[in-house]
């Protein structure tokens, strides 16, 4: 077993090589970044059009929505940048390429996810950070030291929630051959996380809060900064939700790795 420090060192070495290799395709990086720019701003574009007609959405102003959306963009970036290889899992299990990961003295999830460091995701992260700064200036959010500590902690938890949902959906590839629709569905759900949870009725609010907790990717944690005086106390546990979810997903991954039978040849 390697120590955490050795893993960190290994990760840096792997990704440095990966980035060097990717940099051969500079035009592709630029085109992909443009695509990422548009795709990450799509829902915000819809909000912008809607707020031309309505003054607020369930009591939330446009600038508050921009803040929630910026939080969302930052929170989904680790999934995009570090865990993007999840999308290839269904190909690798189908072709049998996944078998090679069993024979390395490394944590399999670590090794598998380290194969891709998605550079275009950096565009999304950058746009998210710029938007978050812009919205918090416009809203006049007072950044106390406590809030400055709370921000990375909540973002970490939020990122883990999304990673857990998508990777767990990707794990379907261990059991069924054509699992694209499963991960695609989870990916679609992701887009609902910046919506104010208060627009939903009881059933959906419960589902999005506790069953498939996409509310914890953006809406709940960003309330701590937007309306700290109005939130339910359990919202402060949102980082723990992320850790709990990831543990659950890791368990699913381990089950999947053990259940996968190769291609049979």
């Amino acid at each position: 077993m390697l120590s955490l420090r050795e893993y960190a060192r290994l990760y840096l070495i792997i990704e440095a090589q990966y980035i060097k290799a990717r940099m051969q395709y500079r035009a592709d990086f630029i085109l992909s970044s443009i695509g990422m720019f548009f795709s990450s701003l799509a829902t915000l574009g819809i909000f912008w059009v809607l707020f031309d007609t309505i003054p607020n959405l369930a009591g939330w102003t446009f600038m508050e929505m921009v803040f929630i959306y910026a939080f969302y963009m930052i929170a989904i970036s680790p999934m995009q940048i570090l865990f993007d290889n999840t999308w290839r899992l269904r190909n690798d299990t189908r072709t049998g390429n996944f078998l090679k990961y069993y024979f390395r003295p490394l944590n399999m999830m670590f090794y598998y996810m380290s194969e891709v460091f998605d550079l275009k995701g950096l565009t999304q992260l950058l746009v998210g950070i710029i938007l978050l700064i812009y919205a918090s200036i416009q809203l006049g959010i007072g950044w106390t030291p406590l809030k400055l500590i709370l921000l990375p902690v909540t973002l970490f938890g939020a990122a883990l929630v999304l990673i857990s949902i998508i990777v767990a959906a990707g794990c379907a590839a261990f059991w069924i051959t054509n699992s694209f629709a499963v991960i695609n569905l989870a990916w679609k759900l992701r887009e609902f996380s910046p919506y104010p949870m208060s627009i939903f009725d009881g059933f959906f609010r419960f589902t999005f809060s506790f069953i498939l907790p996409i509310g914890f990717v953006a809406f709940y944690p960003s309330q701590m900064f937007l309306r700290p005086d109005q939130i339910a106390p359990w919202v402060y546990f949102s980082p723990l939700v992320g850790i709990f979810m990831f543990a659950l997903t890791y368990w699913v991954w381990t089950k999947g790795v053990n259940a996968y039978g190769g291609t049979g040849s």
């Binding site: 035009a27 592709d28 630029i30 085109l31 695509g35 795709s39 799509a42 059009v49 809607l50």
Partner: peptide, 30 residues
Amino acid sequence: YAESIWGISTTKEILISILAGALVPLQFFP
């Protein structure tokens, strides 16, 4: 011409769905 079409395809899909009024009726636009 391109190494991968991910960026072009994504941009195409987003622009069409917004500009074609797939997500919001065109009446709502300025």
